[in-house]
Amino acid sequence: MADNSSSNAYWKANIQTILVFLVIWFVCSFGFGILLRPMLAGIGIGGTDLGFWFAQQGSILVFLVLIFAYAFRMNKLDREHGVDE
């Protein structure tokens, strides 16, 4: 295991990353797909509105990007803090 100060900083950076990603995750699914759908009602797409598209398509695409972006960012963090395998 790396020394404690380094792993503490690593953990803090990890938590920060997770929080940012979770905000995007929430806004693009629960937000645009459910809670904010009325606000997107004016933006039409193929016979319905953008909120419907986010609920049935867009959220899934965002999830995909988020996971790979997280994996990429963490690999970098692992190396920076010397905790990679």
């Binding site: 997770i18 995750w25 609920a55 959220s59 899934i60 999830f63 996971i67 963490m74």
Partner: peptide
């Protein structure tokens, strides 16, 4: 219809949680 979008978001969005909060 739209009401069942929960299945689509729910059964995919969980992977984001899995990747960030549990799996590693």
């Amino acid at each position: 219809g739209y009401d069942t979008s929960a299945y689509l978001m729910g059964w995919t969005g969980g992977y984001v949680l899995l990747a960030m909060l549990l799996a590693p």
